[in-house]
């Protein structure tokens, strides 16, 4: 009893002050780079040259925007459209087929089930670099480099997501629902589409956010596969800002970066709760 009373009253300032100081400093460290970036996007090169850090926005936003358009290399709209196309494709395919595979692994008893699952576990960690040389060579020979489909279709086999979906289904699938649907005369695929997918909505939502973001941020594979600038995704497009023609155009670089970063920050502002909860789910149990 005594100890409980003590613990309720205990708020030692000597510990609380350092905690808040550290947390606030870290929060500033997380936000400041993006803040400086956005402010500098509105300032002219001469203003930035005089003082690279400022808390007051400048008035050169339109001017910077015009300059970016004049250079005709960094095309944010093209990059945005390509990234959106690929990321949506990847997300839809990965979600649907991973759920289907997870359903096959949970709802049916089949001979190779265990070995199939072991295989999925085994290949979960294969990094894309290991496949890159062979994949690029194959695509090149078939004339499929620069084909955006080659970045979308591999998502059908997403071992990591199958693993998570299977875990979710094992906890939430009641085989009796499937059986009663069968009695009502539903076909197996129909059962999956109409009954199982809706059950999986919470898991699908979390996985959708992460798949979309990681596909959007993917750099290595598109860099290897896409050589034509009209096919560039956002991260490949942003690479052009490192080029010589932007060497002295500080305002343009910051504006270009803002264009790639702001959509993500906006998405995060709305979905941060789910995203952080999803990261917490991703770990194994302690």
């Amino acid at each position: 009893m005594n100890s409980k009373k003590v613990s309720k009253a205990e708020q030692p300032l000597s510990l609380m002050i350092p905690i808040y100081v550290v947390c606030i400093l870290l929060a500033v460290l997380s936000i400041a780079p993006f803040w400086i970036m956005i402010i500098n996007a509105t300032r002219s090169t001469t203003q930035i040259q005089a003082h690279a850090i400022s808390f007051i926005p400048g008035n050169a936003l339109m001017n910077n925007l015009e300059k970016i358009q004049d250079k005709d290399m960094f095309k944010p709209l093209v990059g945005f459209a390509n990234s959106a196309l690929i990321s949506v494709g990847v997300t839809v395919l990965a979600l649907y087929f991973s759920s289907l595979t997870a359903y096959a692994l949970t709802a049916y008893e089949w001979k190779l089930r265990e070995s199939f699952f072991s295989m999925i576990m085994g290949v979960m960690m294969i990094p894309s670099t290991v496949t890159t040389i062979g994949f690029y060579q194959a695509c090149y020979r078939l004339g499929l480099d620069n084909n955006r489909l080659m970045l979308i279709l591999p998502a059908i086999a997403s071992p990591m997501m199958v693993f998570f979906m299977r875990q979710y289904l094992q906890a939430s699938l009641q085989i009796s629902i499937v059986e009663s649907a069968r009695i009502d005369g539903a076909k197996e695929l129909q059962i999956f589409n109409k009954i199982i997918l809706p059950i999986m909505k919470p898991a699908l939502a979390t996985q959708a956010i992460f798949t979309f973001v990681s596909s959007w941020n993917n750099f290595f594979m598109p860099l290897v596969l896409l050589t034509k600038s009209e096919k560039y995704t956002m991260p490949i497009m942003v690479r052009l800002l490192n080029g010589d023609s932007y060497k002295t155009e500080y305002g343009c670089v910051y504006l270009g970066l803002s264009m790639t970063v702001l959509p993500l920050i906006l998405v995060y502002m709305f979905l941060s709760k789910y995203i952080v909860a999803g990261v917490a789910l991703g770990g194994v149990k302690g």
């Binding site: 941020n217 750099f219 956002m234 991260p235 690479r239 995203i275």
Partner: peptide, 11 residues
């Protein structure tokens, strides 16, 4: 604290 993690590494 988690914010930087979702931003494009290239950017």
């Amino acid at each position: 604290f988690y914010l930087p993690n979702i931003i494009t590494m290239a950017s």
